[in-house]
Structures are given as structure tokens and as C-alpha cells.
Design a protein around this nucleic acid. Structure first.
Lengths: 340, 340
DNA sequence: GTGGCCGATGTAAAGGTTTACATCGAACAT
DNA sequence: ATGTTCGATGTAAACCTTTACATCGGCCAC
């Protein structure tokens, strides 16, 4: 049964006493073959333990059933769960996931173009905001691709992300409902669309509550822990402190939180803090961080599903899928001290 | 130049005015072809942007240059960095990494056997402690495989892990050098070899310092945050509290830490705590956790290197590679209160 | 000068699959 | 009875590579 070399379609054909063409058809277009032969073939397959050689299949078809996932940094802890979503969905449809990371090195992009070509990957999942390939490739017919997290700049590639506006809105709404009126926003000056959207959500929330926008309460960092602390220091240099800090991401929130503790303040008694992303660390902070969760596994799943759709119908169904983020309420938000 | 369909070896041959055999030789056995032709071929390759079709190559060769990585849970935050190590090393040698996860579902093992067969993956990286395949497959000639983190039970498969004994030893030595004599060990009753080894390191450290082993100070949880807290409660039910808690992993340490804080104790003023693994969250805890770091990226790198070795020489060089773990000293360890 | 050898190159087969096209029989309509 | 149609199956080509074997010169030794 389980010989050293795997069974080929020919072995199956011999046992089922049909031609290899019929075997192939019995597998891929069952309705085209008589029920009785289909049965014989299936038995033969069971006996031999046959699995089609994917290499031969891909060679013949001119495309493989592998999806290449290109990420700038695999080591990012967020990557795992997205990958899990991607892989699950892919495997459910008979696709495999091939991974590669550019390490933010543009040079390695070309390497991947070669790799991609040579494996004839069926499609591409792009984590990075830009195409990893040289620009000439971009204008050429691109393989079916979808972006994750961020829209891809060059080329109209559909992408799957999170509704940052809504997420930010949820955070600010919580703060407002707790009674905060002076809510600071610490942003990220980097050009990621996501960051700008989070700020829009913040502004929309204020507007909806009839709180006038106060530019003094908006500061931009660069998304790092350190920049969170720095922004906090700037607030303390002024007179008018906010009662809550809404941060563009969890790193920034951590920086703020550290800074506040260093100054002897308590969270959430003296100040409230919110983050965004719900990195795994968020629940480990003291106090644990109230933040907006990126549905990472779901993002992976949707991105892959979208790509697989594109592979079957040629039509790029939707160009943008935004998932609903959830507010994760932990212990870093409370009513402002004045009210207490 | 960059046409819609990728260049084949035939295109190169035509431009270089040689046969396809010569092209292939120029690429794979350059010394077998005259310098002048080699030059022509290289130019032609540059012109066409030729990359060998990996599918055709694998089909011909009967083996691919993909390594299948099978993990029980890709979503595990630790997975990312190991994967990064694996992938880097693989790509450096022209191999691709294909990932799959069993989700701890034995059933899916068979699926992977099929997948493996069909892709003729060159080798296997196993995260799980057991072979994912049915037992008959184990006795059959197995593809070159290496285990990561834990030795693989069935079959003498080499593996790459961390020296748990030494790691635990480093942690206990630190505690001892700070003056602790009553050091508790909170273990994990699960059968993972790693856990037993960590306890060995603990015991060896005590012995080396001439501290008699006190069985009362050893408790087994199951490696979760909750079990850490539970174990702590058990200690408090008794009279003789330790001055330090050495935990089998970071989760447990977090549980202990939460429990101590809930009882109003301060770390490290009242009690010291150590973990193991250095999960990304460890530095976010308050106080940040002193723990033993698993060199994850290095583990991945070594595992892949070992596998690649096995693929070139048939010889399974070494059967066990243990990397040296580092002690990461943060703020959860101090001298015992009595000394202060 | 001729036979042998060797280095460089070409020819063709093989690897496993899918599928256009051909074939074959039966059923049906005339 | 014969021609037509159609459903089921078989035949063979193609996908792109690698490599064993054949071929072809040139060079050396006799």
C-alpha cells in the first residue's frame, strides 16, 4: 500500500481498468464520467492512497495552488494570528501558503519577484503598503493580489483592513460616556492611512457629542512607546491638561501610561488612557489597557477569501473590506476625577 | 522584456544560440561549459529575466525545494520569530517555507501527509512533539525532518531546542545570589520534557548552593496564568512562605504576580518572581519580569540549517542541538525582605 | 596519417498531470 | 435498416526541466 514512491495517476488507472484521462476526469469533473466507473476509480484511489502530484499539476496548468504571503516583518507578534487566518482559509480551499518577508528591504523585493515567477504562485497577499516589485512589474499584468491592513499604493489592489474610524469612534464614545470632555489625541505623523482614519474617528466622536475640537489637545508622535511618553511630557508643560488620553496605538498608550506612573499619577483614577490594536501585551499592562481590537484572524481569513474569489471569478469583487473592530474594555478608563 | 508569460529556458537558448541543455548546464554546472558560451548564456538570462520554473524542475527532480513547517498552533505569539529564523535560513539556501498547522487536531495530520506527498516537500519541520502522520507512515521511510522545541516521540528525529536545565539554573542562581534560600518552584504537570528539565535545573542550582531540597516548596500547575495564581494561594494557606517564586514559564509568573499584587504585596520588595520563555508580554508587566529568554530566531535558524544539512549529506549529523538561553534581568527580582 | 581521447555541445526521453480531439457504441429518429 | 446524435472513454500532446547518451571536433601519440 504505502510504497516508497507515491502512487501516480497511472497506478490508479491500471487498478480501476480505465485510462488516466478518465481518472483525471473522475476527480475534477465527476459529472462527466459514468457512475459505475467513478466508483471503480474512487476505490482504486482509496487502495493506492493516491494524491495528485501538485508539481505536475501546476506545471500543466501553468499556475500553482500556492499563495505567496509577503510581509515586511514576520517577527511581528501580530503576524501569527493573521497568518493563522490566512492559512486556515487557504487550506480549506486546497491552497497552500508560502511565506516570505522583505524585512523592509526594498532590495529583497526583486528576489521575491523571481521567487514568485518561478513558483507561479497563484496569488499574492501583501502586508506591506507598497508593491515589493520594481515599478515596471507593477504596470505589467500583476498576479491577483490583495493587501492586508493597508491599501497598497501602486495599483488598484483590493484590501482588507479594519474600520479604523469606527474603532476610534468606539473608544472616544466610551470616554465621553464616562464623562470626559477634555480628551487628548496622540497620533502618529507617519503616513499610514490607518492613523489618519483613527483621528477622523476621534474628531467625529467629539463632534457627535457636541464637544468643540480643541487643536491644543492633538499631538503627533511616531507610534512608538517613547513618543507616547514624549507627547505626555508636552502636555504637562502646559497648563490645560486633558482628563483622558486617546492614543493612536497601544505602544503609544504604554508610553503615556509609563509617563503617568512615573509622575505619580494613577490610572484610571487621575487619568484615563485608551489604545488601539489590542496587542497581546495590552492585557499584561498595569492597569490592563482598554483598547480597540483588530480582529486579526478574521482579517486573515477575509483577505484570503477575497483572493480566492478573485482567482475563481476573474472579477475583483470588492475593492475594500473593512472589518468591525471591537472595543475591549479593561481597566485603564474611568470617570474623570472632577466628577468623582 | 517582461512579457506576460515568464521566459522559459528555450527563450534563453534561442537568444544565446545554444541548446537548452547547455543553458541548464551553464546554470547548474558552470565548469562543464566553455567560458565563452557561459557568457552568452548569462547575457541571455539577463535579457529575458529568466527564472527556472520551480514546478518543472521539481517534477523532473522528484523533489521540491520547499520545506513544510507543521505547527500545532500558528497563532502562538512565539511562533512568529521562530518562523522568521526558519524562513531566513531557508531562503538563503534557495528553499521556500510552506506552513501548516494541525490545531492540535490529530485528524488533520493525515491531511498533511497527503499535502506533503503531493508537494513532495523536501523536508519537514515539526513543532509538535508527535509525528502528525499515522503510525504506519512513521515506520515507512520518513522524509528528512527535524523537531523544534521538543524532541519528537516516535522516530529518532533530531531536534533543536533550548537548554532548559541551564536556563533554569541561571534563574535559580540569580535568586540565590540575591540571598534567597527559600525558593519555590511552580511547575507544569504536563509531560513536556522541557518542563521536567527546568525543574532539574532548579534542583541542581539548589544543590550546588548547598540548599537542601524542600518538597513543600514545589508545586505543579498546568502552565496557565490561572494555575500560577492557584499555586500561590496554596502557599498562602500554609505557614512557611518562600521568599521567591521561580515559575516554569511566564504565564505562571504572571499569575503569581497578579496574586501577590491582589494580596497587597510588592514585587520585588516582598517577594521575587522569575519566569521562563520571555514572551513579548514579559517586559510589559509591572514590574517587568526577570525571565529566561528562548532564543527563538536562533532556534529557527539552527533547525533549518540542520535540516538543510541533512538534505545535502544524507547523514543526520547531530541528534540534538541545545541552544544557550539567556537570563533577562528586569525588575521582578530583589533581595529577600529579611536582609533588607 | 590514423586511432584514441577528451572537452564541448546537442538530442531526446522522462517526470505526472490535464485536456483537445478522436473514437466507439448505443439509442433514437427516420 | 441506416444515419445522427450524444454520452463515455481513450489517445496523445503539452507544460518546462534535467541528464544520459550521442555526436562532433580538435589534439595528441604512435
Amino acid at each position: 500500500m504505502s510504497n516508497s514512491t507515491p502512487a501516480t495517476i497511472e497506478d490508479v488507472a491500471r487498478i480501476a481498468e480505465v485510462s488516466i484521462a478518465t481518472v483525471s476526469r473522475a476527480i475534477h469533473m465527476p459529472e462527466k464520467v459514468a457512475k459505475s466507473t467513478r466508483l471503480k476509480v474512487n476505490q482504486a484511489i482509496a487502495i493506492t492512497g493516491y494524491t495528485a502530484n501538485a508539481m505536475a499539476r501546476s506545471l500543466r496548468l501553468g499556475r500553482s495552488n500556492m499563495i505567496l504571503v509577503v510581509a515586511p516583518d514576520i517577527g511581528d507578534p501580530n503576524f501569527s494570528s493573521i497568518l493563522a487566518g490566512l492559512e486556515n482559509e487557504a487550506r480549506a480551499h486546497g491552497y497552500g501558503v508560502l511565506i516570505g518577508h522583505t524585512q523592509n528591504d526594498a532590495q529583497r523585493g526583486l528576489e521575491y519577484l523571481k521567487f514568485f515567477n518561478s513558483y507561479q504562485a497563484a496569488g499574492l497577499i501583501l502586508f506591506t503598503g507598497i508593491l515589493p516589485f520594481g515599478h515596471q512589474a507593477a504596470t505589467d499584468s500583476l498576479p491577483p493580489s490583495v493587501g492586508v491592513f493597508e491599501p497598497v499604493f501602486n495599483g488598484g489592489i483590493p484590501y482588507v483592513g479594519v474600520d479604523d474610524v469606527e474603532g476610534a469612534r468606539k473608544a472616544v464614545d466610551l470616554l465621553i460616556s464616562e464623562g470626559h470632555r477634555r480628551i487628548a489625541f496622540i497620533g502618529d505623523s507617519n503616513t499610514r492611512l490607518a492613523y489618519r482614519r483613527r483621528r477622523s474617528g476621534y474628531e467625529a466622536g467629539l463632534a457627535a457629542a457636541g464637544i468643540p475640537l480643541n487643536r491644543q489637545l492633538i499631538l503627533d508622535g511616531d507610534g512608538t512607546v517613547e513618543s507616547g511618553r514624549l507627547a505626555l511630557e508636552q502636555f504637562f508643560m502646559r497648563d490645560d491638561l486633558p482628563t483622558a488620553f486617546m492614543c493612536v496605538n497601544d505602544q503609544t498608550a504604554l508610553g503615556v501610561s509609563i509617563g503617568l506612573k512615573a509622575r505619580g499619577y494613577d490610572i484610571p483614577d487621575h487619568f484615563s488612557v485608551t489604545g488601539f490594536d489590542d496587542v497581546p501585551q495590552a492585557s499584561f499592562m498595569t492597569p490592563s489597557l482598554t483598547t480597540v481590537r483588530q480582529p486579526r484572524t478574521a482579517i486573515g481569513k477575509h483577505a484570503m477569501a477575497l483572493l480566492l474569489d478573485m482567482l475563481s471569478d476573474r472579477a475583483a469583487s470588492e475593492t475594500e473590506i473593512l472589518l468591525r473592530p471591537d472595543l475591549v474594555v479593561r481597566n485603564s478608563v474611568g470617570p474623570p476625577p472632577a466628577r468623582r
